[in-house]
Design a protein around this nucleic acid. Structure first.
Lengths: 232, 232
DNA sequence: AATCGTCAAGAGCACTGCTCTCGATTTATC
DNA sequence: GATAAATCGAGAGCAGTGCTCTTGACGATT
């Protein structure tokens, strides 16, 4: 009886997977707003109303793609960091930066879906916040490890952190215990700088301006590493 | 005869303006992909096919909105810099940063339209690259002025700039003559960091993480100013 | 074996971008 | 000033969309 129920649920899970796979292909070629439930159904030899039984609304399908996207980039970042030298914190930061960029360049539409402008009318459900933090957790671990090893010494160039930011810092400190508020705000700068640079490249802001994008990215991430206080 | 020709062209220009105005309102409430030519026509008491005579395709209307958006943020940045103290370069950078953020917070959908993920299938025509560079020109002028005044001394923390980036730097140097390649790459870091931070805030990446966003933004822009070598 | 829930299919609604045609009006030319 | 040409608004129409509702068949549960 248990097996029979799982039998039906298994085919359902299989269908869900197939739908998201086809939707991801369409996302890659058409973009988020060009995604069509009817086209997905057509591709599967289904009728459009049948797809609605698995994803009641288009937003639900988008949510599944967003969660998958966060998990995909999160896994890429985790794998990259795991394959790197555990004690070379500057290298780990660089490796992770390049992992995000390479992931984004390979799946520009998926990157746009999760880090670009939100789809209008779409409200991100809570299912996304867990997978969304996977990549961030890795950055935090790198900085936390560097701090614990006594190898995090940011240059003394920043103004003191306003006390009002301490409550926000407390949340982020759970990712990298023991670091100062100063390091936390620098981490946010580096982290937004990383995604800002990728977004500029992917969204066309570098057109007619920057041609050697990989080299510029690498160099600027090295600069941010120094700003963070990571060793060479 | 000249006046009569302008008579018709004047009403045409008026209609074009009215269409873009209504479209901008719809953009603010529905977002880029929710923009509808039929809805604009309905709002004007026109029939949808009449709107197509002024904007043959939806992309053409989007292009007009994009150009207007770039000009709007460009003008905001120019005005903010013009109203600031000409010789306090650190203050000018901060003022400009806040001008961009305030502009973006007031028009999140317009910001998303020009700095967010590109509308799928939309190909930006060349009309946009002029207005797009207005804001960037102001950053360049601030750094160029600071350099000319001998007040730009970036901290010596970054690795040397790879020679291959020199050709790219040449283009950007036209905005701020005389500065070194090192300053130029730092400028790109600061500039992408500025927009990366605003995008993270607007696109929901700070949800459940950062609450005091204005203060964090101000503090991080001050940190980037130090990274750039701007005086306190 | 009967029943209840799940499923694919189809019709249909309201909407979209876009094209075409048709008169009417305005502009330009002779 | 009359006439030819360009422009305009309106309407119908096409192909496509998300989504809802109903119908009939299948399979699992009691």
């Amino acid at each position: 009886m248990n097996a029979s129920r799982t039998a039906r649920e298994r085919v359902r899970a299989e269908l869900v997977r197939e739908i998201t796979d086809i939707a991801r292909v369409q996302l890659a070629s058409e973009g988020a707003s060009g995604l069509s439930l009817r086209a997905v159904a057509r591709e599967m030899g289904m009728v459009s109303s049948a797809v609605h039984r698995y994803f009641p609304t288009k937003d639900d399908l988008l949510t599944a793609l967003i969660v998958d996207g966060y998990n995909s980039v999160g896994a890429a970042v985790e794998d990259a960091d795991a394959a790197g030298p555990p004690d070379d914190f500057g290298a780990r930061w660089l490796i992770v930066c390049h992992a995000v960029r390479n992931w984004a360049l390979a799946r520009p539409h998926e990157y746009a879906l999760i880090y670009g402008s939100p789809v209008p009318g779409y409200r991100a459900p809570e299912d996304t916040i867990g997978p969304a933090s996977r990549a961030t957790t890795v950055y935090g671990r790198i900085l936390g490890d560097a701090h614990r090893a006594g190898r995090l010494s940011p240059p003394d160039i920043c103004p003191p952190v306003p006390p009002i930011l301490s409550t926000d810092a407390e949340i982020i400190r759970s990712l990298m215990p023991g670091v100062s508020d100063d390091v936390i705000t620098r981490a946010i700068t580096a982290w937004t700088g990383l995604y800002g640079m990728i977004s500029f490249e992917l969204f066309g802001q570098f057109n007619n301006v920057v041609t050697h994008r990989a080299e510029l990215f690498d160099h600027n991430m090295r600069g941010l590493a120094r700003f963070l206080g990571l060793p060479d």
